[in-house]
């Protein structure tokens, strides 16, 4: 099938296939993305993170449903860890999104981390790019975050929603150092439970001590299961979007992302250049020499990039 044409024509099978190819690092996928890159830049990225069991998937589903009701096109990327031992993974977030399966405005993709550390999956960024090309208005990226792993999502998303639930008491204390800078919006989900108001108040108080930013994060109580508070979250997202766009943060952050992406890709390119110019035997030979202390690893590393240095200088 002609994937490129399919993407332009809005064919969901083409979208699904291109994500698979890109996730697998296929060159053809990269070629298509290159050609269609000019179509990117329109999707708004929303990160959803928080500890396990707080209802992230349910909240994501309800938000997506609400946006779909407004005629928007939504992509959802749900990330789950891959087992480092077997390479397998169980991706179970869709279970709580069943009502969206047949919504023509919504496209859900589950991804295993496949060895990528930091909370997102190896293919998340490129999948975002592809969904953007496809014409999604909003892209949700959902991942479990406890402590440090949500930094990456905050880095990638335009608006990051930190989801919590009552009864996490100590967890919040332990997390607060990390999470307070990450969330643009805080959602206390399962707010029909005892202690919800207290949790919301605690977060609010902690936010008062954070004066680094001119954006004061919102704290919203929801019962996602019953569709309660969803509109409030929607409004908060739109408000935050307006704030970052008006203040120029959006533009500068996007540029920052582009810079990071260029450097990351450059690193990958250099690596693959090195690996193509260097046979396995040659590499093992160098390793042996270092192991015998005939040469040192610092000089060896300079040696192996010498052949491509000329290319770069060109």
């Amino acid at each position: 099938m002609d994937i490129k044409k399919g993407i332009i024509d809005g064919d969901r099978i083409a979208l699904a296939k291109l994500i698979t190819m890109a996730e697998d690092g296929k060159k053809e996928a990269m070629d298509i993305i290159k050609e269609l890159y000019h179509r990117t830049g329109n999707a708004y990225l929303i990160g959803i993170t928080g500890p396990p069991g707080v209802g992230k998937s349910t909240l994501t589903a309800k938000l997506a449903r609400a946006y779909s009701g407004l005629g928007k096109k939504i992509g959802i990327i749900a990330c789950d860890p891959t087992s480092p031992y077997t390479g397998g993974a169980i991706l179970g977030d869709r279970i709580r999104m069943q009502e969206l399966f047949t919504d023509p405005n919504i496209f859900i993709r589950s991804m295993g981390s496949r060895g990528h550390l930091g909370g997102l999956s190896r293919g998340t960024r490129v999948a975002v790019r592809i969904m953007d090309i496809f014409g999604m208005d909003y892209i949700f990226i959902e991942t479990v975050g406890v402590g440090q792993s949500e930094v990456e999502i905050a880095d990638t998303a335009d608006t990051t929603i930190m989801v919590l639930a009552p009864g996490l008491g100590d967890d919040i204390q332990a997390m607060k150092a990390g999470i307070m800078e990450i969330g643009d919006i805080f959602v206390v989900n399962k707010a029909d439970r005892e202690g919800a108001e207290k949790t919301a108040r605690e977060i609010d108080t902690m936010l008062d001590f954070n004066e680094k930013s001119t954006w004061r994060p919102k704290v919203i109580m929801t019962v996602a299961q019953d569709n309660k508070g969803i509109n409030d979250v929607l409004h908060a997202i739109e408000e935050h979007m307006k704030y970052i766009k008006d203040s120029g943060i959006f533009a500068s952050k996007r540029k920052e992302h582009i810079k990071e992406e260029i450097l990351e890709l450059a690193t990958q390119n250099i690596m693959s250049e090195i690996m193509t110019g260097l046979s396995k035997e040659e590499l093992l030979g160098i390793v042996d020499k270092v192991a015998k202390r005939e040469i040192d690893p610092y000089s060896a590393s300079i040696d192996i990039i010498k052949p491509i240095k000329g290319g770069i200088q060109k």
């Binding site: 869709r94 399966f101 993709r109």
Partner: peptide
């Protein structure tokens, strides 16, 4: 999973339409 596969589990009471949509999106 233990055999190294990525498993997308969608839960109970799925209609053929839901299953097929999920299979397509997840490729």
């Amino acid at each position: 999973r233990d055999a190294g596969m990525e498993v997308i589990y969608t839960g109970l009471r799925q209609t053929p339409e839901q299953i097929v949509e999920a299979a397509i999106q997840e490729d």
